[in-house]
Amino acid sequence: MKKQYWTGRDIPDLHGRTAVVTGANTGLGFAIASALAQHGADVVLACRNGDKAAAAADRIRIVAPGSVVRTLPLDLASLAAVRASARQLHDEYDHIDLLVNNAGGLRRWYWVTEDGFESTMAVNHLGPFAFTGLVLDLMAGVPGSRVVTVASKGHRQATIDPADLNPERDRKYRFPTAYHRAKLASLLFTYELNRRLEAGGSRTIALAGDPGLARTDGGRDMNWLIRVALHPKVNPLVLALSQSAATGALGPLRAATDPDARGGDYYGPPGRAQRTGHPVRGASGGLSHDVDLQRRLWKESERLTQVSF
């Protein structure tokens, strides 16, 4: 009987291709980078913590013998650091085939970066926006090159005002609200980027992959009580309603490698809940497809980061 679902076995041979995965030292990013390496790609782990990135690279080399795995320092909460990382990538590579914008996360407490950005918006959208813009020239003219955003179903619960990406400065900060808003921004950016690439006749496409409800350490900044309550060994409901990081990584991996993927595609778990399961081509929430909103956010992101594509 013909298999009806997409798995890691469907990843094609990637020898000769170079992939940059942000936040790849743990969780989803590690699972994505490891799978790419096991299928032949040269992988760059772009991470804030150099020691953890080096340890992750060693672990990948064990499961993917002979693979080329390197590290790149990348702190998305600092535009100066983002620019330095982009320069280093240019120094070390003449092209890249794949950029997976995976790094992100949320903070329990309100925090403003050195650039004056609310931190959750900075690491999930403004930092990746700037980094993508600064390295996109390395993908120009590369057949099959892709920019993949790791999405979250939480974007469906969000609204956003591009003129005010830090609405909590004067009132109570709620970290789920901030996270969902930032993930909506990521998708608005992805779709606007793809439209601009198509209009310019680029060979590069932009698309998104949703991991569903995956068990990762994305809540490591939460207090111990929340971390314990969300631990699958403590809470059987969490175990029943979620999936492993390796399975969650399949959505972004399909976006990154499926030969039939098209620019603007969105891959994630099937069904109404979209929490678990093998990835299918689906659709993100309606607000993410608002073209006017995409354009306004793009313009404001360029202004704030001083990065023009």
Rank of each mutant, 00 (worst) to 15 (best):
K2T: 08
T7D: 10
N25R: 13
G27Q: 10
L28R: 11
F30V: 00
A31E: 14
L45P: 05
L45T: 08
L45M: 11
A46E: 11
N49A: 05
D51C: 09
A56Y: 00
D58W: 04
D58F: 03
I60L: 06
R61G: 07
V63I: 09
A64I: 04
V69N: 02
V69E: 01
R70T: 12
R83S: 08
D97K: 04
D97T: 02
V100E: 07
G105P: 01
E114Q: 10
G116P: 02
G116N: 01
G116C: 01
F117Q: 14
A122F: 03
A122H: 02
A122R: 06
L126V: 03
F129D: 02
A130S: 11
L134I: 14
D137S: 15
L138K: 02
V142M: 03
P143F: 08
R146A: 10
V148T: 12
A151S: 15
G154Q: 09
L165G: 12
E168A: 15
R174N: 13
R174K: 10
P176R: 15
A178F: 13
E192Q: 14
E192N: 09
R195F: 06
L197F: 12
E198W: 11
A199T: 01
A206P: 10
D210K: 04
G212H: 02
T216C: 14
T216A: 15
D221V: 09
A229L: 14
Q243S: 04
S244L: 08
P259F: 15
Y266L: 08
G268A: 10
G268N: 00
P270A: 12
T276I: 12
H278I: 00
H278V: 04
P279G: 08
D292Q: 13
Q294H: 06
F309W: 13
